[in-house]
Amino acid sequence: MAPRVDMLYFFLIAVAVFFSVLIAALIVFFAVKYRRRSADEQPKAIGVDVRLEILWIVIPFIIAMAMFFWGAVIYLSMAKPPANAIPVYVVGRQWMWKFQHQNGKREINELHVPLGQPVRLIITSEDVIHSLFIPAFRVKMDAVPGRYTSLWFEATRAGSHHLFCAEYCGTQHSQMAGQVIALSPPDYEAWLAQGATGREPLASAGENLYQRLGCTGCHMAGPTAGMTVRAPGLQDLYGKRVQLENGRSVIADEGYLRESVLRPRAKMVAGYQPIMPVFENQVSEEELVQLIAYLKTLRSAEGGTEGSAP
């Protein structure tokens, strides 16, 4: 992404330099050429030239639209992570960044990523708004309490890069910083495997929670369990379009899963009763991440199909 953003940046600099120099040069030129030579000088009036006015309305407009489209194209690809992106869950809090990898490995203020592979960060905050900013990759996204946001990048240079909090969040805002460490894929695998004994992968921690919180009572356990009458089956849910009671439909992304667990009444699945307990304030952000990681692993034998009914 960085080279694409930089190209756009240089285009805008070129435009800015061109117009600043043009205006400055004209002002200096006119000011010198037409400087007042005698106190009673009276310049002749010049009527407005509408063609000129139209010209300098239309030209800036066209250039502005070029900027808009170029910027929009990049923004859209920033919003759409590649399917093979490695998910990492991020929780911001006053004043640190906590990262959780798929295999359960955690780190604070340091994020290890493999070179040449897209990484997707799923971000939230436990308290106020923060913003995760990695200047080297030209990406930034706010960490907003109560919801998930995400960004993705692909590291192309080994080594460590700054990681900042960009949204003012209180006393130690400027200390809420760390490093993104990009490793070659083998080094990354080795790093991931370090200390693996005794550590539970996110999804299996999620499965335990799923049992402990009694989700199974209604949703049934295991990928083979069919639909029960009381609650919808959860296999293949992630990424699927869900039909809601109010006639709308939503794509089941992390944000939807989050809301369905914390506040089930907010978006009711069509055809079910509002019997699911509210889990808000019952699970921590980190537990929620584990639950969601588990839900994402629930696949039926046939695999999910887009748009199938619950």
């Binding site: 805008l12 435009v15 502005a64 808009f68 920033m78």
Partner: peptide, 14 residues
């Protein structure tokens, strides 16, 4: 204009 340009604002915002 740099800040109004979506893909660029992401980097320079804040």
């Amino acid at each position: 204009l740099f800040l109004a340009t979506l893909g660029l604002d992401v980097h320079v915002h804040d």
